[in-house]
Design a protein around this nucleic acid. Structure first.
Lengths: 245, 245
DNA sequence: TCTCTATAGTGAACTTAGTTCGTGACCACT
DNA sequence: AGTGGTCACGAACTAAGTTCACTATAGAGA
């Protein structure tokens, strides 16, 4: 998508630095080869792996298998596995549609943006683990932060509160998506006998000693209650409704 | 701490099942050996590794080195690496001091409990990653959940809201601690040249194009502001102050 | 057109980590 | 002593991230 500095530099560290520095598409010199392995292709392959097999399956070898190359080939374009994580998170962030701040609809706008983020995380199961690790070190992440901040400030939220709220919201989406991905993955391959199956879990809840776990027993049903992302919306509203004061 | 069924069973899966099922200390038959490797010793060693070197350093071999044994020895007592994660999270949870619900002080009590959890996570850097993965499958975690639920219900919170709030709070502490651990770790070994140093990061913030990142530039200072856990308290209050309505 | 050089690409191998297996040690009871 | 079962362990296997020496190739310049 974004034109990128394909600086003809062998050192991938320098490449990474260049990637992070360039604020806008200002290509140094493009140097197309026959069917060149590019960072874009690597990102695409990586995202495909995550989408189809989950983040745990995102190994260097899985990516290169997707691309029909060998592991070492990646290291011409990429520093690290962590670098790849950084890149795919950046890519996802770059795809978010960020609205122009509307002071009258700031809460709605935030719900919309974080809804996008949530859905994106869930589309790439487990990727929120990477998102939690990245900590806004790349430009695309900053772009999203900037937009969220703009919406909050437009809503009349005091700067310090705005920054903190942004932080809370971001942490929460990531954690929510991570947990949900895990639960889903667990449901998928419950053939892993050593892990308790859902039935066993429910059974165990009911088998809990009533004297020690009265509330948990009584309200276990609520734990899984809530259609769709009702639980998510609940927490978002909790935060958004309260920062105005 | 807890007396445990040292069931004389070779199969570690059976052991795990036994661990999870026993609600109270009802030892089958204890069978002490000379200097036996026990689950307790494994947990202690594991926690020591995490406390001193961080969760990333928690490898099977690191644990066995601590214990002076070999990797394979662990598998007599433990199913998995994941099982170890489960055990240490359980251990930490078992150490939390949970107050008797006081309807008049429910918010204060929750702040106190989650403060304990936060501090514990931070004492064992990175361990919140394991906490996020466990998803309350063991009894000690249920014990904490039960207590939190009890406090919320005592505070007059509607059951469904209480359960959801508990979920949000738990996710948030874990994510908060995880992020903080990461930041601290990054500060510690910033010799990793490929990662941007703190100075570089600040420098970059200031170098951001003012037209695209006005808010981020202007309020970058607030990001790191807040002494101690002010940011944490802020979010907790956001949630706690709002669930009453 | 030919050569030269820098860079992209690659196979093989190294390292670390989780896990398994066969074997031996040890204890308890017969 | 013998026997059975538990516990411990060394060695080895697999998977994954990473490095390195080497090759292939495209484009620049002679």
């Amino acid at each position: 998508m974004t034109t990128r500095v394909v600086a003809v530099v062998n050192d991938p560290k320098a490449r990474r630095a260049a990637r992070h520095l360039q604020a806008d598409g200002a290509p140094g010199q493009s140097k197309p080869r026959r069917e060149p392995l590019t960072v874009e292709r690597i990102i695409a392959a990586a995202l495909h792996v995550v989408a189809t097999q989950g983040y745990d399956a995102l190994t260097i070898r899985a990516i290169t298998a997707e691309l029909g190359t060998s592991p070492s080939s990646l290291y011409v374009h990429v520093v690290n596995k962590a670098d790849i994580d950084d890149l795919i998170i950046g890519k996802l962030n770059s795809e978010l549609v960020l609205p122009d701040p509307d002071p009258d609809r700031w809460q709605e706008q935030l719900r919309e943006v974080y809804g996008q983020i949530r859905d994106q995380y869930l589309r790439y199961p487990g990727i929120s683990r990477a998102a939690l690790a990245v900590v806004s070190t790349n430009l695309e992440t900053l772009r999203v932060g900037e937009a969220v901040l703009a919406i909050l400030l437009a809503g009349g939220i005091e700067p310090r509160v705005a920054v903190w709220a942004m932080d809370s919201l971001s942490l929460y989406v990531a954690a929510y998506a991570l947990e949900l991905s895990l639960v889903r993955a667990r449901q998928a391959d419950s053939d892993q006998e050593w892990v308790l199956s859902r039935a066993e879990l429910v059974q165990r809840f009911e088998a809990l000693p009533a004297d020690r776990f009265p509330h948990t027993r009584k309200h276990a049903a609520e734990l899984t209650s809530g259609h769709g992302h009702e639980r998510f919306d609940f927490t978002l509203d909790l935060i958004l409704d309260n920062i105005t004061r």
